[in-house]
Simulated scan of single mutants.
Amino acid sequence: MFRKLMAGEFGQVRAEMIAQDHVLSSLGGRTANEALEAGTGAKEVWLAVCDAFEVPENHR
């Protein structure tokens, strides 16, 4: 579901780039991919991405 939400909000290519490259301080200085691999819940990662990129509430 996380990947589907990311692609829906940012487009497939940009979503992959964000998940791989954008470091999120709210996730302990990890990227979304690193946080997911470390066991952080997909919902927590999604909300961290939403906060970082100011995704409107109605898209979350």
Results as ranks from 00 to 15, higher is better:
K4E: 05
K4Q: 11
K4M: 01
L5N: 15
L5Q: 15
A7R: 12
A7D: 15
A7W: 06
A7C: 05
G8C: 03
E9N: 01
E9H: 05
F10R: 09
F10E: 13
F10V: 06
G11W: 01
G11K: 10
Q12W: 00
Q12R: 15
Q12G: 12
V13N: 10
V13D: 14
V13I: 09
R14G: 02
A15W: 07
A15Y: 07
A15T: 09
A15M: 04
E16D: 12
E16C: 05
M17T: 15
M17H: 13
M17V: 14
I18K: 05
A19V: 12
A19M: 13
A19H: 11
Q20L: 02
Q20I: 00
Q20N: 06
Q20S: 06
D21E: 10
D21L: 01
H22F: 12
H22C: 11
H22R: 13
V23Y: 03
L24M: 11
S25R: 08
S25M: 02
S25V: 00
S26G: 14
S26Q: 12
S26T: 04
S26M: 07
L27D: 14
G28Y: 06
G28S: 08
G28R: 11
G29A: 01
G29E: 02
G29F: 00
R30T: 13
R30Q: 14
T31N: 06
T31K: 10
T31A: 03
A32I: 00
N33C: 01
N33S: 04
E34P: 12
A35I: 07
L36K: 13
L36N: 11
E37Q: 15
A38L: 08
T40A: 02
G41C: 03
G41V: 01
G41D: 12
G41K: 14
A42I: 01
A42E: 14
A42G: 04
K43G: 00
K43F: 05
E44Q: 13
E44C: 00
E44Y: 01
E44S: 10
V45N: 08
V45Q: 08
W46V: 05
L47A: 07
L47W: 08
A48M: 06
A48D: 12
A48P: 08
V49P: 06
V49A: 04
V49W: 07
V49F: 03
V49E: 08
C50M: 06
C50F: 05
D51P: 07
D51V: 09
F53M: 10
F53A: 04
F53C: 06
F53W: 14
E54V: 12
V55L: 04
